[in-house]
């Protein structure tokens, strides 16, 4: 236990130093890259809760990521234009309002999708979650008011009282704090009574039902929690990149989130963050050298899936000699 706390603290401090390191070495893009990787890590970690701990292979997780992002984008659009959403809800650029709003809306969307999808299982579940994500994708493409295919520019990052959010480093630290808090939340979640029930359902749903657990309700609750996490990540991403687009919920984005989870290690806490970091770094580095970066990424992914069990986390554990 002690050792885990030390490692977490060390990683947090190292990550907190990134903006300084970037300035010292002149690699100013680092802050932006690590920030994005952290946000993708959150989205992947939220997916991992249902996928790794709950055994629900959702292929539409990017939808909630995108919806969270669009909530920020749409609220900013109305704030900027001085209008209101559906003539009822005025816009805002206050992060203390936009983030909770994003989390709630993403959670509602997840409740809707989950309530219908969880009636099926197996292949059908994978495909119906994909189908719902596609519906959201095309819905946002067709909304001309909010930029259609082009999406919404958010010219200024949401404000947070007392902080200068225009400062890149400040924004990065805000993201880092959210990522750390979300990690700790998930750590508690998987150890909670609810988390244990979810783990039981993954292993043997029939047995859990025979113990009196209404598995559908628990799975739905997990699905909603997971969607809320993705919504938070999406909202942060739009603040970070100052841009929301339908591309955030494209099906290949859902695939990428799954890759991050697998690459890092299914059903581990740190895995999705590591997977996100590795994949994102790999993509951006390779993209610098060749436009065909997808080829090595594809080959690497294929090798990882076919030859390793448990992703990079398993590798780290083996190297570290833990258990």
């Amino acid at each position: 236990m002690k050792r885990e706390h030390l490692i977490l603290l060390a990683v947090f401090l190292l990550l907190a130093l990134v903006p300084y390191a970037a300035e010292l070495t002149g690699q100013t893009s680092w802050t932006r890259l690590v920030g994005q990787a952290l946000i993708y890590g959150m989205a992947a970690a939220s997916l991992n809760f249902i996928l790794g701990y709950g055994g629900m292979v959702s292929f539409g997780h990017a939808a909630f990521f995108g919806i969270g992002g669009y909530v920020v984008g749409i609220l900013y659009h109305h704030f900027d234009a001085g209008t209101s959403f559906l003539g009822l809800i005025p816009g805002t650029d206050q992060m203390l309002i936009t983030l909770p709003a994003a989390v709630i809306v993403a959670g509602l969307a997840a409740a809707l999708v989950g309530a219908m999808s969880l009636r099926t299982g197996g292949v059908q579940f994978i495909m119906i979650t994909l189908a719902f994500a596609q519906m959201f994708f095309f819905l946002f493409i067709s909304l001309k008011t909010y930029g259609g295919e082009d999406g919404i520019m958010v010219r200024r990052t949401n404000s947070l009282p007392g902080l200068d959010m225009k400062n890149k480093a400040t924004l990065y630290w805000v993201v880092l704090c959210f990522a750390a808090a979300y990690y700790l939340f998930l750590r508690r979640l998987v150890q909670s009574s609810f988390g244990q029930i979810i783990a039981g359902i993954r292993q043997n749903e029939r047995r859990m039902a025979a113990m009196g657990i209404s598995t559908y309700r628990y799975k739905l609750a997990a699905f909603v929690l997971s969607g809320m996490g993705a919504g938070l990540a999406g909202a942060l991403m739009v603040n970070f990149l100052r841009f929301a687009s339908p591309d955030m919920m494209h099906w290949s984005r859902s695939g990428e989130l799954m890759i991050m989870v697998i690459l890092g290690g299914v059903g581990t806490l740190a895995g999705p963050f590591i997977g996100a970091g590795v994949l994102f770094t790999l993509e951006t580095t390779l993209a610098r050298y060749t436009e065909h970066w997808m080829l090595p990424v594809g080959i690497l992914l294929l090798i990882v899936v076919l030859t390793t069990r448990g992703g990079l986390m398993a590798l780290i554990r083996r190297l570290g000699g833990k258990r």
């Binding site: 292979v57 994978i126 799954m258 697998i262 990424v297 080959i299 992914l301 294929l302 899936v305």
Partner: peptide, 16 residues
């Protein structure tokens, strides 16, 4: 393998 591995491996094939 389970569906998850199948989805990811064939997703990799698409990229390739």
């Amino acid at each position: 393998r389970d569906h998850l591995d199948q989805v990811l491996a064939t997703f990799a094939l698409i990229l390739i």
